[in-house]
Design a protein around this nucleic acid. Structure first.
Lengths: 221, 221
DNA sequence: GGACGATATACTGTATACAGTATAAAAACA
DNA sequence: TGTTTTTATACTGTATACAGTATATCGTCC
């Protein structure tokens, strides 16, 4: 049990700060921490049952991914995005996904595609149950998984970071969710394009999907 | 002296952690902190004359930009890049610069271009004096400035992050620096393309520049 | 002699205490 | 009454102390 067992970190040995990062991300996307809101370390720490040290480290992580702003001696604020910033970010996400498409087609094997299907199904299940946050996370995970097939770490990380930054706005964009059935159909199309190894079809549906996202999100910016 | 004086943080009110981040970045690109090297908080803190708290926050920042790896309970290691990762990153940087080119051409006004020239001249001055690190920083600042003209924050930040990650390898790539005069000429070309408002010329020289970078860097990966 | 287990050491993870700085409130002055 | 100075308060920035965990060393048993 030497070679395979100690490869990946076995048990949940997450550091506290890591968990706090997760938690704060959720709180931001769900709106419990509103954009522009001041974050007082003491209060938030107490609320989470965590001392200031790990909380501060978490805030620093979030600052690095542009989810909170850290102004010296004046504390942390939840980042506020202008409409242009949202548009620019979505535009860049589209660029990255376009870049990923041919790579994904080249690399995807049947297991990857099966995995993608699983993700999609799980996502739909959460949607049915009305668990919006979980649904949303899997939605983003689905897109991340497609970009992940590119096997280009730099690309993957840029995409992840951008996606993380726009999570909140896209979350509220799904509030009405009349475009939802279309989104689900597009996911199916993506899987089909991968199976058919049709990189142009994949790139096209990704682009279309992002355009729809912008439509949904536009009014909330 | 109320309105203009207290607009931006007047005196050096940088937090300690921020300065530590800067310092560590330099130490990594200069090789004083070798790739794969273990970072012991106590030792490094003492060496920098800083307590562990700000040092830890700095490490967390660097971890977020993928310059160090943070494994739970086992401390921090300087990130090691595989050749493929370097190639992928440079490839992505090229993509982002290509995206930025038309935007930069559209937005650049004479002052911007003058600023760029200043940057280039200062860079050359440092090169002449043999101050490699400063030369290098201005070199990267030059590229950042061009991308900055796109006025697309998401694009700018992605580019900055990627550039930061590849700083070390590009630094050693300039060791021989026989391609240096060519690089300088290409910078001139970029400025000329901006003045001529020729987005295709700008995109082309950016692409060529990046290809040369890869040539220089290749053997060190 | 080699392998396994117990103990010791060293380093990270977290909490807390103290110092410095900014903002808010109050008081003094015009 | 409006404005400026002073004082108080609250929060961040940093250091340090303590607890938990991993690794190394040594001893013991087979």
């Amino acid at each position: 049990m030497t070679t395979s067992a100690n490869r990946r970190p076995p048990i949940a040995r997450n550091k506290l700060a890591e968990q706090v990062v997760e938690r704060l991300r959720d709180m931001i996307t769900e709106g419990h921490l509103a954009p522009g809101e001041r974050i007082v370390e003491g209060d938030l720490g107490e609320q989470l049952g965590v001392s200031r040290t790990p909380l501060r480290e978490a805030l620093r992580s979030l600052a690095a991914e542009e989810l909170v702003e850290l102004t010296p001696s004046r504390g942390a604020y939840v980042r506020r995005f202008t409409p242009k910033e949202v548009a620019d970010a979505l535009d860049l996400i589209a660029l990255l996904e376009a870049k990923a498409a041919p790579l994904a087609v080249a690399n995807a094997n049947p297991e990857d595609i099966a995995q993608l299907r699983l993700l999609h199904d799980a996502m739909m299940a959460y949607y049915g149950k009305g668990e919006r946050l979980q649904y949303f996370k899997l939605n983003q995970a689905f897109h991340s998984a497609i970009v992940g097939l590119s096997r280009n770490m730099a690309l993957i990380q840029c995409h992840t970071r951008l996606q993380s930054g726009q999570k909140r706005i896209r979350y509220v964009g799904h509030e009405g969710a009349d475009g939802w059935s279309g989104a689900a159909a597009e996911h199916e199309e993506m899987i089909a394009a991968l199976e058919a190894r049709d990189e142009h079809a994949l790139a096209e549906v990704l682009r279309r999907h992002m355009a729809h996202t912008w439509d949904r999100v536009r009014e909330f910016t």
